[in-house]
Design a protein around this nucleic acid. Structure first.
Length: 887
RNA sequence: GGGCAAGUAGCUCAGCCGGUUAGAGCGCCACGUUGACAUCGUGGAGGUCACAGGUUCGAUUCCUGUCUUGCCCACCA
């Protein structure tokens, strides 16, 4: 027989060693599941499938907590639905992340002192594919490590052959319908990555800069003052605008101003967009480098001058400043103006500056020829799908956010001047200049037969991710998977990409497939650091890497912490103590399992009928089953998880296991067999409830149970049936035993107050009132758990013992005759204190019960409840007063 | 500038489609080697549910306003 460290014999089999150690266990079970094919959908039996497209992690490096959050919630849903018997498909994959990956690769090259031009496009693409292989492998391993029960046989990558075909097809179809167009517009230009980005990829940051008041000479002499935050853009000015009703400047309208440095003569225009109160009331107009001015330029047909090169230096239009970097140019310009006394004033000014999400560099609005998606018609259809309930959001407030964005949408710039991503399916004829948009590469120009050249640009990464729910199922082909699994059921992702991704999927899904891509959108919060700061790629800190947590606590602990960390849609913090609490819970369950397995030795006999204690725990179990199922239905994963723990720890371990020891160690084999059977029953059901949260631990325990218990529903818990509520929660024993537990608690409390040694057995006398039967049947429950013996039931006409501590609890009067230990004074004080509390209670209840309006307006059950409460309090009060009198 | 969320025990957070003595984990205090578990057990202390009004028989929960914090959206030079 195995020995414990302290020398006591251990009756538990060696396989259930304590404490629970997740390392090894987790990887082992994952392999078993994968090899058995449990994670692929069951064959088509006509049942409605439950489908989730896993948000594809970016291949920009390793896993982060965002992925852990996604895996946790989605795996909970998938495992739960699988256990319910639904055919489930959870389709995993990865995303090439275009600019994100581009940044990673460019940084790697920079560290070697190289640029992408050293490699050339082919060489750079080779580098990309090498990286994809490496990063993809890491990510796949980590997703497995988290326990994601997804279908790896259907894994996809946004740039694999099928998905690339889908991208081309989507582009061509949208282009044919006029929903994709090319044009020269003011775009957000990232001078560092040297590419256009979409408005969503620009992050605005409020900074305190300067507002320069600049004197522009007038052609007819004199000057006009204009305020600007970007003096270098003076070089691109093509007008000066004032408000039409601004009389201060009405006399200047026919004249011209002279742009400093370049000496260009520019007209005055009037436009109601000008704010008379701001600055001098006159504004310089730079249509080539400011969105506002661009609009104004369009309205007034102004010249549009581009003063920047793609790398952010100034071009030949900048005169003497050509070749300078944009920031140097600003300083030089100010100096130049100051030298000529053309700066009237400089004031601090708070304004917002756009930065590129990836590179962090300041965005320059710049004229550029790009490809765009015409979003208005797509957005209208998407908004309708949400308004009419075809798509539902959880929490609901995100639907409003979604709609607001859709209603104010701008066209989407989808071309990027980088080398990572899907090349535009666009070719130009070298001879005649013809543009050809085609899903397949054409051999030659259809017009003149000339040679073709493919457009060098690639697509925004979100264009391909926008197709994800259907491109992964085989679209544009009419595949079995597409027919069976589309539309998908739930889309769950972080709320931070609702516009980037969710919105695009809805727009493109409806347009290209005619159906919404998913029915439910569950948006989860972000995982923050313990101090509340955001985990960021640009500023990594120790603790940001989930790998550490997996090492120390295992995937189950991390998952449970994430699932129970908060409420839907709200951010959560990575709190170390919560991970410890998860681990402790796992250990608690593990030990309960050891106990249960050990107890099965008693199951050789035909079990006795269930006792009220059995009925109580089975009733509590059924209530937990019902609650958990309802909470999962409504996406309340945190509440569900906490409820399961509450049941396992507080009901099962603290009360049922403790009380089962009476029967297990007693001398009635049939009773012991019943206790063992109930233990196994409750444990196996609890494990199934918990499995979606802690797949590894529950599978491990299940495997040990298999050897000890018969009648388990399945060889593997992952495919075991989800528990059913058998309605035992309404059995009277549920309340009866709860009352006994309340009595036990009260006795323990009284013992403590009377300074009775915890281990000491003391006598108790109970006047059971209406609980005589249950107390008779389960007196051992009270005896053992309250450590009282002998326990004597007194008739209602019998006088209570004199020198005793008196307690009223669970509808019973309990007396603990503690000879020589009862301090009469202290006892009287204690009882007086209780009297006061009860009196207050009676008064409170009495006030509302004597209130006519309460009686007439409050619902009947509320009134009844209050009556009951008053009655109970009054009863207890009477008993205590009687006791006081006798002292 | 507009919008959203949050403000509940020392800390991290639940709860509240109005009605219980407002809960959990951690922390704290006291006690405990009772054969599942010290990653534990038992008992306890600790909250004017941000503030001010209003609706109601009754408000932590609903409404209005204020303050604080966080986030999103927005072309004010």
């Amino acid at each position: 027989m195995a020995r414990k460290v302290d020398g006591r014999p251990a009756a538990t089999p060696d396989v259930l060693k304590r404490p629970y150690d997740p390392s090894g266990v987790e990887q082992r079970w994952y392999r078993v599941w994968e090899e058995a094919g449990f994670m692929s959908p069951a064959p088509n039996d006509g049942q409605e499938p439950f489908v989730i497209s896993m948000p594809p992690p970016n291949l920009t490096g390793a896993l982060h907590y965002g992925h852990a959050v996604i895996v946790t919630y989605e795996d909970i849903m998938i495992r739960w639905r699988r256990m319910q018997g639904r055919p489930t498909l959870w389709l995993p994959g990865t995303d090439h992340a275009a600019i994100g990956t581009n940044t990673v690769l460019m940084n790697q090259l920079a560290q070697q002192g190289r640029t992408r031009d050293d490699l050339g496009r082919d060489g750079f693409e080779q580098l990309f594919w090498d990286w994809i292989g490496k990063s993809g492998g890491t990510i796949r391993t980590q997703i497995r490590r988290l326990g994601a029960s997804c279908d790896w046989t259907r894994e996809r990558f946004t740039m694999d052959e099928g998905l690339s075909r889908a991208v081309n097809e989507a582009f061509v179809r949208l282009h044919e319908k006029g929903l994709i167009y090319k044009g020269s517009y003011l775009v957000n230009w990232d001078p560092q990555d040297q590419t256009a980005v979409s408005a969503l990829e620009v992050e605005h940051e409020t900074v305190v800069g300067s507002l320069w008041y600049v004197r522009y000479p007038l052609a007819d002499g004199g000057h006009i003052v204009v305020a600007t935050t970007r003096p270098e853009t003076i070089l691109g000015d093509t007008a000066i605008a004032v408000h039409p009703e601004d009389e201060r400047y009405s006399n200047l309208l026919n004249g011209q101003a002279v742009v400093p440095v370049v000496d260009r003569r520019i007209p005055f225009i009037t436009d109601p967009a000008v704010d008379r109160e701001f600055g001098s009331g006159a504004v310089k107009v730079t249509p080539g480098h400011d969105p506002n001015d661009y609009q104004m330029g369009m309205r007034h047909d102004l010249d549009m001058i581009n003063i920047l090169n793609e790398d952010g230096t100034l071009n030949e239009n900048a005169g003497r400043f050509a070749g300078l970097d944009r920031f140097d140019a600003r300083n030089e310009m100010v100096k130049w103006l100051q030298d000529r006394d053309l700066i009237e004033n400089i004031v601090d000014h708070e304004h917002s500056v756009g930065h590129a999400e990836r590179s962090g560099s300041i965005i320059e609005p710049m004229l550029s020829e790009q490809w765009f998606v015409k979003t208005k018609p797509l957005a209208a259809a998407a908004a309708n799908a949400v308004r009419d309930g075809r798509i539902r959001f959880y929490p609901e407030r995100f639907a409003d956010e979604f709609l607001r964005w859709m209603d104010n949408i701008h066209d989407w710039c989808i071309s990027r001047q980088i080398w990572v991503g899907h090349r535009l399916p666009v070719w130009y004829c070298r001879s005649c200049g013809e543009t050809i948009v085609s899903a397949e590469a054409p051999a030659s120009c259809g017009e003149c037969g000339g040679d073709l050249e493919q457009d060098p640009d690639v697509l925004d990464t979100w264009f391909s991710s926008g197709l994800w729910p259907f491109s992964t199922l085989g679209w544009p082909d009419d595949t079995d998977d597409m027919r069976r699994f589309y539309p998908t059921t739930v889309m769950q992702t972080g709320y931070d990409i609702i516009f980037f991704w969710v919105a695009r999927m809805v727009m493109l899904g409806i347009e290209l497939t005619g159906e919404v891509p998913f029915r439910h959108v569950y948006l989860s919060g972000l995982m923050r650091r313990e101090d509340g700061s955001k985990v960021s790629k640009s500023d990594p800190r120790p603790g940001d890497d989930p790998e550490e947590v997996l090492e120390r606590f295992g995937a189950d602990a991390l998952r449970y912490m994430i699932a129970t960390a908060g409420t839907p849609g709200s951010d959560m913090k990575l709190v170390w103590q919560k991970l410890e609490a998860s681990r402790n819970f796992m250990n608690k369950l593990w030990n309960a399992a050891r106990f249960t397995v050990e107890a099965q030795a008693a199951r050789s006999l035909e079990p006795a009928p269930p006792t009220d204690v059995d009925r109580w725990i089975l009733g509590r179990l059924d209530r937990t089953v019902a609650e958990t199922t309802a909470r999962l239905e409504s996406f309340n994963f945190g509440e569900a998880g906490r409820g399961i723990q509450d049941f396992i720890w507080n009901d099962f371990c603290d009360w049922f296991i403790e009380s089962s020891k009476i029967r297990l160690h007693g001398d009635e084999p049939a009773a012991a067999a019943r206790a063992a059977a109930t233990l196994a029953d409750v444990l196996s059901t609890s494990l199934r409830l918990l499995h979606p949260y802690m797949p590894f631990l529950t599978e491990e325990i299940w495997s040990h149970l298999l050897g000890a218990v018969s009648g388990l529903e399945s060889d593997h818990i992952i495919v075991a049936p989800w528990p059913q509520d058998k309605g035992r929660g309404s059995h009277p024993a549920v309340e009866e035993i709860s009352a006994l537990a309340e009595a036990v608690r009260a006795i323990r409390n009284a013992r403590r107050e009377a300074n009775v040694e915890p281990g000491k057995w003391i006598e108790a006398v109970i006047r059971p009132g209406p609980r005589a039967d249950i107390l008779e049947a389960e007196s051992d429950f009270v005896k053992r758990l309250a450590r009282v013996d002998p326990l004597r039931l007194a008739g209602s006409d019998e006088a209570p013992p004199k020198n005793a501590v008196a307690i009223v609890a669970g509808g019973m009067e309990i007396y603990l005759p503690l000879e020589g230990m009862v301090d009469l004074e202290a006892e009287r004080d204690r009882l007086l204190g209780q009297t006061r509390e009860l009196e207050a209670e009676v008064v409170r209840a009495g006030e509302s019960l004597s209130n006519e309006k309460f009686l007439s307006r409050a619902p009947a059950d509320v009134v009844q409840k209050r009556r009951d409460r008053r009655e109970q309090a009054a009863g207890e009060l009477a008993a205590i007063r009687e006791r006081l009198d006798s002292l």
